[in-house]
């Protein structure tokens, strides 16, 4: 564990809490992609399946439970809460799950470290996490005006990924024999997806203007 990894995990948690707080406080999920949230829930469940029999550290276990729990709450709010569900922008959140899930499933069967069920599910979760933000980015693009909290949510998520890259660089430099190609390449693709958003986020912040994405 190094400081970059720790900062990444905290930023990840913070991003989820910002979103949950926004939904809870405003009783609105306008601008939030349910598709992305459900994909993240699928990512967490397939990756943390080993929670009950593979104990690595209390730190990891607590984060796994918290990520699954908080993301489930977001999905519950958006699907079931009587007021919140009315604010869900289903007409614009039309990205097809299959376009992301199917290629990731095929890829995880073809490229993985060990050919067994849990390893394949873990690999699937790595590939799916890399692209799970796409429905959210498409929704932001479509609705153009991005409210502050939604913008902060995506920004914090991107920052979490950036810190994971720093963590890998640090580990590569300090841990002899450390390499994780599959995770690195997926992580680089994932972080790359945020670059465009980052550019507009920083521009808006510098000019103290509301974040607006170009068409």
């Amino acid at each position: 564990m190094n400081l970059f990894r720790f900062a990444g995990d905290i930023l990840h948690l913070l991003s989820i809490l910002v979103l949950l707080l926004k939904i809870h406080a405003t009783k609105s999920c306008a601008g939030i992609s349910l598709k992305t949230q459900e994909l993240y829930l699928a990512v967490f469940i397939t990756r943390y399946l080993d929670l009950f029999w593979n104990f690595h550290s209390l730190y990891n276990s607590v984060f796994k439970v918290v990520y699954i729990g908080t993301t489930s709450m977001i999905v519950w709010y958006m699907r079931r809460h009587r007021n919140v569900k009315l604010t869900y922008d289903r007409d614009h959140d039309t990205f097809r799950y299959l376009f992301l899930v199917a290629p990731c499933a095929v890829l995880s069967l073809l490229i993985n470290a060990r050919y067994n069920l849990f390893e394949i599910l873990w690999t699937f979760s790595i590939y799916l996490e890399a692209v799970a933000i796409l429905p959210q980015l498409v929704l932001l693009q479509r609705t153009k005006n991005v409210d502050n909290l939604t913008g902060n949510y995506v920004f914090l998520l991107g920052l979490y990924r950036a810190f994971y890259i720093l963590n890998w660089v640090y580990r590569f430099a300090t841990e002899p024999g450390y390499s994780a190609w599959l995770v690195w390449i997926s992580g680089l693709i994932q972080t790359g997806l945020y670059l465009d958003f980052f550019y507009y986020y920083v521009q808006a912040w510098k000019q103290s203007k509301k974040l607006q994405l170009p068409s």
Partner: peptide, 10 residues
Amino acid sequence: DDDEVEHDEL
């Protein structure tokens, strides 16, 4: 048992 791969990150 080398069938297990260690995943130490989240």
